[in-house]
Design a binder for these strands. Structure first.
Length: 585
RNA sequence: GGUGCGCUAGUUCAGUCGGUUAGAAUACGUGCCUGUCACGCACGGGGUCAGGGGUUCGAGUCCCCUGCGCACCGCCA
């Protein structure tokens, strides 16, 4: 037996017990006649002591130990003469009678402690060492607990966890696919699923009316702090349901998660906001509702006073930054620079300072003090606030102001990771116009059903058609989304037509689904949550990488495995593949 | 595809206006030390200043190219 206890479990009541521990040497403190060893496993740290009167052999072994040596210690639990209140095991120590080196270790490239001295890149290369650190262990444990909580809830609700294949066919719509060449079918490729969307719909046709899966999905797009090429979805689908049924189940599910994982009781119903409202009030389809600073339309008040910047704009919108009247010229200039950065793209920033005696603004030459005050008050500004106004094309101005709102909130410390503001955004538009390719794309995906009352605009004004689609949003992040699907082959064909598919192309790519719909498809719908994002939300981190055991770096590389990499010529030959120099691409 | 920031000891970083032998902390090694827990003290080893090119009497420092990393925009139905 390698151990009788873990390194985190011994307490004062265990004094006088003879125990065997095994773990990694975190640190050795040699004081001459006596040596202290911090022994670590994933349960904690226990101090081992080697004393003057210990056997010569034990002392000799202790002298050989280095960081991260794997050792086994047999010894007696003692009450410490000098207790350490910072450690849960700080009242005791284990006096070693025998130390056995189970494995030696090279000096690690960074310190494996609560706070490491290593940089991101290095820690990623030696991820298995970084994972020994308590913060990473807490992240892995959180993820495990969440997965358990998900399964417990959905199982109780009657959902079945059914696996779907990873090797499926490619569909060029949407994100780029990762493809896998087929040896047995030369020149043909599988694709890894971007999501099991069509497969779960087929499960509905098959009669499994409540399905879920915690499933890996793959998208060959550029990475971000919250985007990995392979990520995990909590994928759910239900039959014989309307939007309301789905929102009801998954609102209870979300509350269950907050309760079990964070111990938070959310009793109020989640706020619901239409997409149009979210855009006008927050300039985003995923508003951060942890704080106010809502937008107001001041177009009517701003125009017609000879200020051409506003007069020439389609839309003028602003918000009151709470308590920011004290901002200095330098701070305002910095925010102006912020909105003028190419990533935001505004031309300039108008401000109104709400002081005790009156207003002061960057547009005082063009408006009377009453007119300025009217605009500020329309934005809900009070004395002590600073109003920021942007103008331009409606949705451009709104999204630019959204970037500013989040920046100001960040500076004011309002984006508190311990606070949660969950909500539903509903009534998304069905289609999104793409300037580049001059065609409509499905905003959610092409299996989403349109709202019945908007179906009349399908041909004449597709941009006006709303979908039965909804997102679960928390703290400015899209955590999940879904829709009521189309279950009618004819309607599905009509949507493909609106998206510019020829009947032949639609048949070639999605024939399997439309054919299935001819065999008695039930009304159905569902949604999927980003599991990694949910973990980082609950864990209070910005990056999902901390919650993935072996993540990819910014360039989609696994620096630990050094993947992707070249393959043998034999493998290439078997797959009928030929390499091309990058320059010839 | 694009923008910004970064790359100096095992690690995290400093390095002034371009000027002698590139520093600190930590880690590592050796010695001393009986209550440490960020142990302490002393000594020691450790550098392709990311790579290449250029400017200059002289480049870690200035310029150009390439690579790598991080964040973001595009992209992510």
């Amino acid at each position: 037996m390698y151990r009788t206890h873990t390194c985190g479990c011994l307490r004062a009541e265990d004094v006088n017990k003879t125990v065997t521990l095994a773990g990694w040497v975190q640190k050795v403190r040699n004081l001459g006649a006596m040596t202290f060893i911090d022994l670590r496993d994933r349960y904690g740290i226990t101090q081992i002591v080697v004393e003057e009167h210990s056997s010569e052999e034990t002392k000799a072994t202790a002298a050989q130990l280095g960081r991260e040596y794997v050792i086994q210690v047999i010894g007696n639990v003692l009450e410490r003469s000098a207790k350490n209140s910072k450690m849960v095991t700080g009242d005791i120590e284990v006096a070693a009678t025998t130390i056995r080196i189970l494995n030696q270790a090279q000096t690690p490239p960074f310190t494996i402690e609560e706070v490491s001295d290593g940089g991101d890149d290095l820690r990623m290369k030696y991820r298995y060492l970084d994972l020994r650190r308590p913060p990473l262990q807490r992240a892995m444990i959180l993820r495990h607990k969440m997965a358990q909580a998900i399964r417990t809830f959905l199982d109780k609700e009657g959902f079945l966890e059914i696996e779907t294949p990873y090797l499926i066919g490619s569909t060029p719509e949407g994100a780029r696919d990762f493809v896998v060449p087929s040896r047995m079918n030369p020149n043909q490729f599988y694709a890894l699923p971007q999501s099991p969307q069509t497969l779960k719909q087929l499960l509905m046709v098959a009669g499994y009316d409540k399905y879920f899966q915690i499933v890996r999905c793959f998208r060959d797009e550029d990475l971000r702090a919250d985007r990995q090429p392979e990520f995990t979805q909590i994928d759910c689908e239900m039959s014989f349901v309307e939007q309301e049924d789905i929102l009801e189940v998954f609102e209870r599910w979300a509350k269950h998660m907050f309760h079990t994982v964070l111990g938070m009781e959310l009793t109020e119903p989640f706020l619901r906001m239409t997409w149009a409202e979210a855009m006008e009030r927050y300039g985003s389809d995923k508003p951060d509702l942890r704080f106010g600073m809502e937008f107001s339309d001041v177009t009517a008040l701003a125009q017609g006073h000879g200020f051409s910047v506003f007069d020439d704009a389609e839309y003028v919108t602003g918000f009151a930054a709470t308590g920011c009247a004290t901002y200095t010229r330098k701070q305002i200039d910095a925010l102006t620079e912020f909105v003028k950065r190419p990533q935001v793209g505004a031309k300039g920033l108008i401000w109104i300072r709400m002081e005790e005696g009156g207003t002061k603004s960057s547009i005082d030459k063009f408006y009377t003090p009453e007119e300025v005050r009217a605009m500020a008050e329309r934005c809900g500004a009070k004395t002590g606030d600073m109003v920021f106004i942007l103008c331009g094309k409606k949705f451009k101005a709104l999204t630019q102001l959204c970037a500013l709102r989040l920046e100001v909130a960040e500076q004011l410390g309002l984006r508190d990771p311990k606070k949660f503001a969950p909500m539903w955004v509903i009534d998304f538009p069905m289609f999104e116009w793409d300037e580049e390719t001059q065609r409509f794309y499905a905003m959610h995906h092409p299996f989403t059903s349109p709202k019945l009352e908007d179906a009349q605009y399908m041909e004449s004004d597709p941009g006006r058609v709303r979908a039965n689609a909804y997102d679960f949003v928390c703290n400015g992040t899209e955590i999940g989304g879904g829709s009521i699907r189309i279950h009618d082959a004819k309607l599905q064909a009509q949507i493909f037509k609106a998206l510019g598919f020829t009947p032949e192309k639609a048949q070639a790519q999605f024939g399997f689904l439309m054919n299935a719909f001819k065999f008695g498809a039930p009304p159905h719908g569902g949604l999927a949550f980003g599991f990694d994002r949910l973990c980082s939300l609950f864990g209070g981190a910005d990056s999902i990488r901390d919650y993935i055991a072996f993540p990819k770096n910014n360039n989609g590389r696994d620096v630990m495995l050094d993947a992707p990499s070249l393959i043998d010529q034999t493998q290439l030959d078997e797959l009928c593949l030929q390499l091309v120099k990058p320059a010839e691409k």
